[in-house]
Nucleic acid binder design. Structure first.
Lengths: 305, 305
DNA sequence: ATTTCAAATGTAAACGTTTACATTAAGGTT
DNA sequence: AACCTTAATGTAAACGTTTACATTTGAAAT
């Protein structure tokens, strides 16, 4: 080892980050803006981001719980000074809000956001195809009345999953009616309530597609309490394939999203933009999904040992 | 509004954070060091930290997936320059490692760490009492052979929960034997395997205490696959009370930890240390727990609607 | 030994704030 | 009107790096 390095270590020297940032005009930090940090989905995404960022010697600064447009705009402004780029996950944001709250040159990646043809890097889940696929699967079991528990209204994922559901129903021999569409907000509790409403519907649906796994679990709980067997009386499917989906009873038929890959991709894309600021070409990436048939739809009894 | 402010807004002025940090000698950022970012437990903790930090206009910089002592020491050094204080959650760290990798003046709060009487602010869960309580509860149902699925060996929470389990067994009419202690690592998968080993034990235990809820869920899954009814054939209890514990089938008897409060407390304590650097008195806080009896131990049938 | 080029070293300005201090202005008291 | 106190304003140094540029040094080539 070079003498200098040895001495540096002896003196416990470590460069002052603020001075370095000031001088170099970069912080080696990327910002993550989330609506909320709740449940396994988000911790998986962040895990992907964190490991990828660290591989490239970047740091992650996280700000969550922005549930109104005003809040997220404030967060944008506050964050923008301390990061080299931003990953934004929020249903509340649109292109004009971004332009008016961010320095124009700041690289941005939109994750699971509604992108109205605006020129931003964006990563989305293939919600439409995933929902279409799993609902088609439910229909293939012969179900005629398939209910959906919807996600938060303004959420683009929720909207696309609903669209996939509707088109799949229409394309199948199942019955299409908006009376089979029940509101939810991606939490277990909201789905618990929705499931009870579904049980009180006449004629009763024989299958439920929950717009995410957390809601599928909430619905399952309500069905159990009301002595309704899954998949015997009512079949059930979710969306996301969070780790726990394999382990619940019955195991959950769902749509697999490589959740942590979302985070990995977002960070990679952002770093690309940061490093090639000039000639970086913005584009939209859609992450594919895959239907995973487990017990809750009545397909199989799984043995995962 | 003052004219200056108006003009400032018009020009889209925002102060340069790096320059401000350099000049003020503080970053208004606190660092979080985690071993891993996995499952609901961590997202809850971070949520508590994030909201509390934001209330005080502080930012959170997060670094996870440090699973060896070398990694976490590297992370300590890298982080220390960019934050005003550090919250550390890691089984791999000890006082000397902290002292030799951090500037002495940097405020630190240890969360769920092993604190060997060293002079640090620390926050811990009352693991011993919680485990003792829930195991005593299982014993009160008349179980004589109560197994435990242990957590990661070097983890202090795991050690304390084991200690609580052992003391509770000895204090009850149940049978104490280390052959009822099965290894696990806090993941569903590890508990799945452990549960199968438990089923093959002769005589078979009639109750299982899993050292966290994720493992309880993993064990439950294995029991179901092997046609073992819970709580009919085997009673089950977990630890943490993650949100999903209410919603699984059967609902999970567990030990409630106000998880997000852990994060809230840690941040508050750290901010206190940052602001009162001189006369801040370090101390250890132990967060109480509460046994929550649900279905999986055979207590009641819950109706949560 | 002189020239040429590259490499090593040294120097100083810049990065954009904050803060401490000095100066000036203003207001109130005798 | 002279004096004191407080407030407002202005000035300059400091924060700890990086980087661009100038200078010196060293080595290779003629």
């Amino acid at each position: 080892m070079k003498l200098v390095k040895q001495v540096a270590r002896d003196l416990r020297y470590s460069p002052n980050i603020a001075a370095r940032s000031l001088s170099r005009r970069r912080t080696e930090t990327i910002g993550i803006l989330l609506p909320d940090l709740y449940g396994e989905f988000f911790s998986e995404v962040i895990r992907g981001m964190d490991t990828t960022a660290r591989q490239h010697k970047y740091h992650l600064i996280i700000s969550s719980s922005h549930n109104s447009k005003a809040e997220i705009e404030a967060a944008l402004r506050i964050m923008s000074g301390r990061v080299d780029g931003l990953i934004i996950m929020s249903p509340h944001i649109d292109a004009s809000a971004l332009h008016s709250n961010l320095p124009g040159a700041l690289p941005v990646v939109l994750l699971n956001c509604h992108v109205d043809g605006s020129n931003f890097d964006a990563i989305n889940i293939d919600n439409y195809k995933g929902a279409h696929g799993v609902v088609t699967h439910l229909a293939s079991h012969g179900h005629k009345r398939i209910a959906i528990i919807k996600g938060t209204e303004e959420n683009i994922d929720a909207q696309e999953r609903l669209r996939g559901y509707r088109d799949a129903i229409k394309a199948s021999s199942a019955e299409y009616s908006t009376s089979y569409e029940f509101p939810g907000d991606f939490t277990e509790a909201s789905a618990y309530k929705a499931a009870i409403r579904i049980l009180n519907t006449n004629p009763q649906p024989t299958a439920i597609f929950a717009s995410n796994d957390a809601m599928a679990i909430g619905a399952l709980s309500a069905l159990r309490v009301h002595n309704t067997s899954v998949p015997g009386d009512i079949a059930l499917a979710g969306f996301d394939d969070i780790p726990i989906a394999t382990y619940i009873t019955p195991s959950l038929t769902t749509v697999r999203v490589r959740i942590s890959d979302l985070g990995v991709l977002a960070v990679k894309r952002l770093l690309e933009a940061i490093h090639n600021k000039k000639e970086h070409a913005r584009r939209r990436i859609v992450l594919g999904t895959e239907v995973v048939a487990r017990e809750s739809c009545g397909c199989t009894v799984m043995h995962n040992d």
